[in-house]
Design a protein around this nucleic acid. Structure first.
Lengths: 156, 156
DNA sequence: ACGGACATTACCGTTTACGTCAAGGTTATT
DNA sequence: AATAACCTTGACGTAAACGGTAATGTCCGT
């Protein structure tokens, strides 16, 4: 298993971010302040790292600003809160209420991603049509070429 | 039909970009310098506008830097060049050669988009699993709630 | 030929998302 | 207790992607 806690250097290496970026994200509120060693060294938990990798993904895939990503991460947090609350107060009626909230949050994230996918698919389809047209034209060119060769064959 | 040529103000309105941004893109080489009126006013053709809207899409969907987008647009240009050349020198063998190039370019763009889509789908699937788990848990909560109600019904 | 709307270049300013020291404190090992 | 390796908080720097304004020129309808 991975060590329980990692210092910033190791986290940086694992996530591909720099130490500065990690501190920067923390400063901007994208990362919850991690725990610290007595001397002040940051200690990241597995959960922290999960969250960091989440951010990296959001950036790479969606291309959103950090401000946007922060909002999306708040959805994450809502879910985490709900889990904790369901653990603490396991009254079925209250749980059910919170579950509905959780489901709404997740569905929103999913539909956001789906919208993006749909747009990308549309974009891809336009390229695909283009490919088809080009292929058709190159078929024609090939046909013409064969005709030309046949003609020169007759001549020879 | 749309007017043959538009001035920068109208283009800005139609594309949702600012005039400054249009000039900036031109300066950075993302847009070919449009034709000009005698006095120096920029005149954009339909083709120019197509290209601009292309850029807007790339930005919104892929979230790439302008430098990256510039590279992708060069693929576009390669294709345009190929079309012109095929018109000018319609020798089948040469055409065929260029067609192959065109196909390669298009396929590269397509696969780039496909990779992005695949990553997004993976991300969506993770949310979907999460949704499933939450739904299952809320089923349990519902079951518990019904049991509770039944019990209180018996008591009442 | 003139007034108002629209454009031009030039240049400085701003925000975002970090990079890059500097000066000093902490941890682990010997 | 000394030393290397690691960390801390500033503080300033920077590239990208524009925003905003000034000073000036152009277009066009009357």
């Amino acid at each position: 298993m991975a060590k329980q806690y990692m210092q910033i250097g190791e986290v940086a290496e694992r996530t591909g971010l720099t130490q500065r970026t990690l501190r920067f994200y923390e400063e901007k509120g994208l990362l919850a302040p991690p725990s610290r060693l007595e001397g002040g060294f940051r200690l990241y938990s597995e959960d922290d790292i999960q969250r960091i990798e989440h951010i990296v993904q959001f950036k790479r895939l969606l291309g959103f600003s950090l401000a946007d990503i922060k909002n999306m991460l708040e959805a994450e947090e809502t879910l985490a809160d709900i889990r904790v609350m369901n653990q603490q107060e396991p009254h079925p009626a209250a749980q059910l209420q919170r579950m509905r909230k959780a489901i709404a949050v997740i569905e929103e994230q999913e539909s956001l991603i789906n919208r993006k996918i749909a747009q990308l698919e549309q974009m891809r389809d336009r390229w695909r049509e283009r490919l088809d047209r080009t292929l058709r034209r190159s078929q024609e060119a090939l046909r013409d070429l064969e005709a030309e060769l046949a003609a020169s064959g007759v001549k020879a």
